[in-house]
Design a protein around this nucleic acid. Structure first.
Lengths: 360, 360
DNA sequence: CCTGGCACTCTGCCTGCCGGAGTGCCAGAT
DNA sequence: ATCTGGCACTCCGGCAGGCAGAGTGCCAGG
């Protein structure tokens, strides 16, 4: 079952899905919240007695049991076996995230540390590398960061470097700091002046433009050259367009896989499909791709389209240098995760990466 | 205990470490070989009866038991418990690798497939990415590939690109296809002609040189410029030297972590330190660093310096575009691995990456 | 030097048993 | 109408005992 991912920022009213009956009153919600919190903490099914002891609910275990029965009836919690405590279902976590949890903001020392750590980066690779590591460490989960997307970037500069008489290296530099390079085999020797001319024209016409617009802007460039030079120009253009089109070049970096060992007791079974998913860039990209651009997205258990991740939750958000997002980042952890903390960390890191990127 | 890593290509006579007594005769070696092969296949301690059934040793189980007792005495095999079969020790695997196993060559369809797969790569990142994936798939283990080392590369080209009046992007391209870029904040606006002059001089003096020699070659470059320009030149040089020195930039890529799940039954304990090790680039780099340059190195269990990898073996080898190696690659798997097959795959992949790199 | 036989040991598995934790329900209290 | 205490019930988890199987070490004989 795949639900529509829901944004949680700002909090929206949740749809009341109860079939019939009395309102889902405050105490009942408090019980659910308490169950989620305890279960996340202890990793063990939580019973009525333990619950009243640890949270001051002001009622007796028997009452809590009634509430629990109701919550189970409505599908928010479930019993692993008769006479065991309750654990939240995906639907229960959903409600928790939508209505019961506040994103936990980072403390200001934490913010300072984040900012400081990210500021040490020397280039884009380094920014991304530091970001994943940081995110993995903060959340103690698996972190994923997408490189700034080529399609949302603009051309900062195009450089042509002569390697041999007929070989030219094409270097594309974007405003987000990405550098792509390709070697172009030209049909014949390329003259210095032609190269300089081509370089100048490329930058004049394409500089500052969003990458997807570049092919249109350069379409008729060969016409601006002597017929003898046109094959060379066309070859270079072809390589350039190829580089732009390459959606293979949606790159991703991840860190914190060692945190998978904290997944659960039964974990050979749990961990294998997750590791497999993490190896597949395509899966990760689709995962992040489903993230709404600006708002944070939480996808819980079966809400994930990819089967291997059915027992994990994904918290993701876009980040960008300005107001618009150029890529996504997020973390992947067990459904039984600390949602408020994780969301706080993800949001903070995204914000600071954006800032760093804007500065460079 | 950390042994000196030993090369296995060409096979060297192993030092006979027996304390005293009768020669380690052929049958006894055959028994050890059979034990290793069976254990690798079944993952279960192997007993005398099963051994004679599956390998035609031409003797009775009782005789094999005597041999086993002797092998155990000398530390090549061990019993998990009384009345269980035997499993090889690290020392047993060592002997197996040194004297009993032949590197298993790839079949020619396999070679073709490797070559074909690697030839599709469009740039260095892609070559490395394809190589790790291939290696992981062939060996069904965790694969590690180091990017061509900066220190062993030569300068192909240095490019300067003006971003803003006082900001210049420095791009360094090596003969192995690596591209490093840094943004340089100059003390003041930089003129076009100065930039062109600097670019020309940089390439004239540094082009073709091994990276470690570059600082020496450029040391007195500022003297070749007008006093007014020297601060700019120095700033650019400083950034360039920093880029060269950065041994952080020894990058690594890995794949196949999902194969860790095939490690063993007890594996939460085994897998955690391994995952941690894999996250630490430094550890991986040291690991590969201990590889002899040309010859293949096999480090078994406790022979690995890093504790977390005490129950794993590492098979690694250098690869290079010409006759000298520019970086290393290898695989990490349980000590209980198929050494001949793994070594064959590692050797073949290294050879082909070298070729691909030489061609581009 | 190899082999068959024998006694011994240890694991793995199944069984039965018991305590503990937790539930559901009901009747009574507020 | 809602909460609460009490009670019977269920199920898991751990522990002890018993049993079969696999494998060994050793010894005497070929």
């Amino acid at each position: 079952m795949v639900d529509e991912p829901r944004s949680v920022e700002p909090a929206r009213a949740v749809v009341d899905t109860r079939p019939v009956g009395r309102p889902l009153d405050d105490r009942r919600l408090a019980v659910l919240r308490a169950i989620v919190q305890d279960y996340v903490g202890t990793e063990e099914p939580v019973g009525s007695k333990a619950l009243v002891e640890r949270h001051s609910l002001g009622v007796s275990p028997a009452t809590v049991r009634n509430d629990m029965a109701a919550l189970e009836e409505e599908g928010f919690i479930q019993q692993p076996h008769t006479s065991a405590g309750r654990i939240p279902t995906d639907k229960g976590y959903r409600l928790f995230v939508d209505r019961l949890a506040e994103v936990k903001p980072m403390t200001s020392p934490e913010r300072r540390a984040i900012r400081h750590f990210l500021e040490g980066a020397v280039d884009l690779d380094d920014v991304v590398a530091r970001t994943v590591r940081l995110l993995a460490q903060l959340t103690r989960q698996v972190a994923v960061v997408q490189y700034p997307s080529l399609t949302r970037s603009t051309v900062r500069h195009i450089e042509l470097v002569q390697l041999t008489p007929a070989k030219v290296m094409l270097v594309l530099i974007t405003n987000t700091g990405r550098v792509e390079q390709r070697i172009v085999d030209c049909p014949g020797a390329v003259g210095d002046t032609v190269l300089a001319d081509l370089r100048a024209k490329l930058n004049a016409r394409a500089g500052g433009r969003p990458l997807p617009e570049v092919p249109v802007a350069l379409e008729d460039l060969p016409a601006a050259f002597e017929p003898a030079e046109r094959p060379t120009v066309s070859t270079v253009l072809a390589t350039l367009f190829e580089t732009l089109a390459e959606q293979n070049e949606e790159r991703i970096m991840l860190a914190g896989t060692a945190n998978l060992t904290r997944f659960g007791h039964d974990f050979p079974l749990t961990i294998q499909p997750v590791l497999e998913a993490l190896e597949e860039q395509v899966v990760l990209l689709r995962l992040l791709g489903e993230t709404a651009d600006a708002a944070m997205t939480v996808r819980i258990g079966h809400e994930n389209a990819y089967e291997g991740l059915n027992s994990t939750s994904v918290v993701s958000v876009g980040y960008g240098s300005g107001d618009q997002s150029v890529a996504k980042l997020g973390v992947i952890g067990p459904t039984r995760m600390d949602y408020p903390g994780t969301m706080g960390a993800v949001r903070a890191v995204a914000r600071y990466v954006g800032q760093i990127l804007a500065e460079s």
